[in-house]
Amino acid sequence: MQDRPTSIELLEAAADFVDREIVPILDGQRQFQSRVVANVMRIVAREIKLEDPFVRSEVRALSKLLAHPEPHVHSLDDLGKVAFKLNEELSEKIRTGAADSGAWRAEVLSMVRRSVEDKLRIANPRYLESDVALRKEAIEQD
């Protein structure tokens, strides 16, 4: 085991430093690139925090959608490989028209949306939040 701080705490400290101390003293391309650096560190921190539960629920949902028994794998690495295979199988089904219409299409759309939303919860949670707000606004207008 490793000592504290955790990897998340380390990354957040580094990202805070870049945002607070480096970004303000630079300009132009360098300033922009250092914002990107801080953002990348925050993505990694969120991934360490969230990827385990996300990939577990993705594998569970995809197995159900594709009518497979739930696989007996436990490590994050193996789960990732299973999720990859299941997403490939789903992609092939979509490509050959199996999700063009009908009840299964609705299930596929909501499954794919969940996966995409989980990717955004790691890559860009603010984008997801503003998208949810916009859609809510659009529904209220109708």
């Binding site: 922009f32 690139q33 990107v36 650096v37 953002n39 990348v40 993505i43 759309l109 794919v112 949306r113 995409v116 939303e117 990717k119 955004l120 790691i122 890559a123 860009n124 984008y127 997801l128 998208d131 859609r135």
Partner: peptide
């Protein structure tokens, strides 16, 4: 390029927008 590398994680933004438009 850290910028180009990080753009790889923006793909999901377009995926969400595509799902919105299709639905």
């Amino acid at each position: 390029s850290v910028e180009l590398a990080s753009i790889g994680r923006r793909t999901a933004e377009t995926e969400l927008e595509l799902l919105n438009l299709i639905q």
